[in-house]
Simulated assay, not measured.
Amino acid sequence: MLLIRNLLYWLVVVFITPVFFVLLMISLPLPRRRRHIFGVTWAMTLLWTLEHVVGLKWRVIGAENIPDTPSVICSKHQSGWETFALQKIFPYQIYVAKRELLWIPLFGWGLAAMNPITINRSDRARSNQQIIEQGRERLSHGFWITVFPEGTRVPPGVPGKYKLGAARIATTLGMPLVPVAHNAGEFWARNAFLKHPGLITVVVGKPILPVDGATPESMMAEASAWIEARQSEIGGTGPNAHPGQKRVHSEDTRAA
């Protein structure tokens, strides 16, 4: 049954991706926020399919912490699931992404139409400048900015090295930094064909404000400490959980 559910999910991916790619290309002359409707709808369709076909449900703790003004979303990165779900949880946003993603047929071209901040990770000095320059321009259009500070997907239970890009945007542009923890990787492993049913927990922290005296280092230290503490609290419930975190599932963490 798990295989059949996943095959149905992948059939939806194969069917709708070209359709939404064409819609994105047609919408290029439109204002950015209107253009984003098509990309967000693609993500919401796949999120719905994961929930109702595969059985991968989710809950959000701390939604009341989401600010009213554009902010930097500083999220744990374990799977592809959060790239869909963050677009549901937060207002219109753009991602900071490595430029190589733009070279992927259809997906990359559609991503380019969504105006991400793209960086060359091999040139760190230039990438930091690109993040700020492009971030300022995206903020002028009212977009939130999503950053995965570890830079790549990290397995559950393994803390990555948090880079300063998200905090640099926050301090330079005067934006709140919103930390986000989740355990999606326990149900959707990196590069895995199979996605497992279950209940993903997302925790949104209180915004960290770029007050006087705040530095990228101090803001990221606070954000990473908060995220990793929450990861320890919510981890261990999925089939791909780190062996050191696995625990007996309680009633409130089982899939309905």
Score class of each variant (00 low, 15 high):
A181H: 02
K88Q: 15
P197F: 03
P243H: 14
V96E: 01
L11C: 14
H52R: 10
Y95E: 10
K195V: 10
Q129T: 09
P70Q: 06
I208G: 00
P116C: 10
F148K: 03
A223W: 01
K76A: 03
T118P: 01
V154R: 02
P156G: 04
M25A: 03
P155F: 07
Y92T: 14
A256G: 12
G157A: 06
Q93Y: 02
I94M: 13
K206G: 03
F15V: 15
E228L: 15
W144S: 02
L8Q: 12
G157M: 07
H141C: 14
A43V: 04
R138D: 03
I145V: 08
L30N: 04
T17Q: 02
N183S: 09
G160P: 05
V202M: 15
F38G: 00
V72G: 04
K246N: 05
S140L: 10
G142E: 11
A125C: 11
F20Q: 06
A97V: 15
H196C: 09
G165H: 08
V22R: 02
I208S: 00
G213C: 07
I16M: 12
E233C: 12
L101I: 15
K206R: 08
M175A: 09
M44E: 12
L106A: 03
G135F: 00
P176A: 04
R121Q: 12
V60M: 06
E64Y: 05
V204C: 04
I104R: 07
T41F: 06
A125V: 06
F90S: 01
L50W: 01
E186S: 07
A214Q: 15
R5Y: 08
V204H: 00
P29E: 04
G39I: 05
P156A: 09
G213P: 06
A214V: 11
G157I: 09
P179F: 10
G244E: 14
R168S: 05
A189W: 02
I117H: 02
E233P: 02
E64G: 08
F107L: 14
P105W: 05
Q130D: 13
K98G: 09
W103H: 11
I227L: 14
P197Q: 10
I117L: 12
D123P: 12
Y162V: 14
F107S: 02
K88H: 13
V211N: 14
R136S: 07
R247F: 05
A63D: 10
G39A: 13
P70W: 01
F193I: 15
E251T: 15
F21R: 00
S75W: 02
A192G: 07
R121P: 09
P176N: 08
A97L: 12
I227D: 00
H77W: 03
A181L: 08
P70G: 09
M114Q: 13
V54Y: 02
P155M: 13
G160C: 10
K76L: 10
F38M: 05
K195I: 08
N65F: 10
R5P: 01
L23G: 06
V22I: 12
G157Y: 02
L86P: 00
G80R: 03
N191P: 06
Q245C: 10
L101Q: 07
G213W: 11
L164G: 03
S140C: 05
V158F: 07
T49S: 14
D252K: 12
D123L: 11
V96T: 06
Q245F: 14
E137P: 01
G238T: 11
E51C: 05
P91G: 04
V40N: 11
